[in-house]
Design a binder for these strands. Structure first.
Lengths: 219, 219
DNA sequence: TTTGCGTTTGACAATAGTGTCAAATCGTAG
DNA sequence: CTACGATTTGACACTATTGTCAAACGCAAA
């Protein structure tokens, strides 16, 4: 193994530990000492590989975004597939990611609120706004052709992510009140999935009340 | 004004400032100095009225819970009113609270994850589990009588709060991408409301797919 | 073996935070 | 006015955090 490879290896080990801790406790509540201890090196060692805590966080954040967003975009653009199928696959993708990292929804929302500009910045650096535009254009095209009902895009967003993310955001709370164990939680998630798909499908294909004060589909 | 009244008054001033700051930035990111500066007194003064930051937070938290939960419970128990009406009123209650404190949803979820036991403890001290049981019993009675479709209670919870809370959780993000200003956000909320009500009503009155692996309505 | 480079580490500086305490201050009842 | 209790304050102790640095270390090539 070359020196560069050893270096990259340590960098990867650090990123892995940092990712795990950042997701679990968030940026503010995770200390460099925590991460160093987790990797098994000294705290200044972290600064050697990533100059500051911020830079390390950016790397982790980018990694997380890249692990899911492009996948979802790709699924949503497959116009030849029925929308219900696409939605189910999106839900599956998120489920599998969130079941590996149950605190990820909490993490994203927390960091999104701690520093929006950073999220926007990262997304821009990864050219996600461009890709997002393709997705929304594609969906609006389907709406225009009457294949999908016209729904303001933020409403699609709220519907999908609200239903998808709420079980994870409240997992601790709900399991401490309703459920016994993690197995029950996963069973519950599986039973919940068809509700998400159906509600999204309903929203996108059936008639709903219109409010004239907000009839322009913005964006 | 008596000495006791002056004391209570200062206590209230502190609580008000603390509440505002805690909601905005969360427990960890709010310092006693912040609060003291906001009230216009000295940091040790806070410790004089509330011995520790924790005790102060408990007081704030209790205040917040009491400002909304009983209201919602009461609305939901009014069996004589159609469910759609009750749901709309619940949404209205939350809307009016959240529009006054747009960061409240973030706050509750963050603190709920930071320390579940505290939330449970506070709720218990306020006898909310008993009242919650009355509400769920009431709803299950309506389900048993066929007035409402049998839906696992957590699903009602996810549906309502997911749809209700997501716009607020992502307000910064969404407005920084889609919307121009706060006015647009409020308009959007009003247009969004009927969707919440309709989706909840659909869930509670129309047929939905059943998954046998999870057909027992738990709790 | 020695030189040199990349890496690791202990020690330090700077900042920020909580909680405590005794002294100073204030207001008021006697 | 005085004395007492309630309140406010400055100062302190303690802990935790990030970032820096020069010195030590280890290893591989010359």
């Amino acid at each position: 193994m070359s020196a560069a490879e050893i270096h990259d290896n340590m960098e990867a080990r650090i990123l892995k530990a940092a990712k795990s801790l950042f997701i679990e406790k968030g940026f503010e509540e995770t200390s460099m000492s925590d991460i160093a201890a987790n990797v098994g090196i000294n705290r200044p060692g972290l600064h050697y590989y990533f100059r500051t805590k911020d830079k390390m966080f950016h790397a982790v954040f980018e990694d997380i975004i890249l692990s899911i967003v492009p996948k979802v975009f790709t699924i949503l653009m497959q116009q030849e597939r029925p929308i219900a199928q696409r939605i189910e696959e999106v839900v599956n993708a998120y489920y599998s990611l969130f079941l590996q990292n149950p605190n990820l929804p909490m993490f994203i929302i927390r960091e999104m609120n701690r520093d929006v500009s950073q999220l926007v910045e990262t997304a821009t650096r990864l050219h996600l706004p461009d890709r997002l535009k393709e997705v929304t254009d594609s969906l609006q095209e389907e709406m225009a052709h009457g294949k999908l009902r016209r729904v303001p895009l933020p409403f699609l967003f709220y519907n999908l992510y609200g239903l998808l993310v709420m079980p994870f955001l409240t997992q601790n709370f709900v399991t401490s009140i309703y459920l016994d164990n993690e197995k029950t939680f996963v069973e519950m998630l599986n039973a919940w999935k068809p509700y998400i798909v159906l509600q999204m499908t309903t929203l996108l294909t059936c008639d709903m009340p219109r409010d004239d004060s907000f009839s322009t589909p913005f964006l």
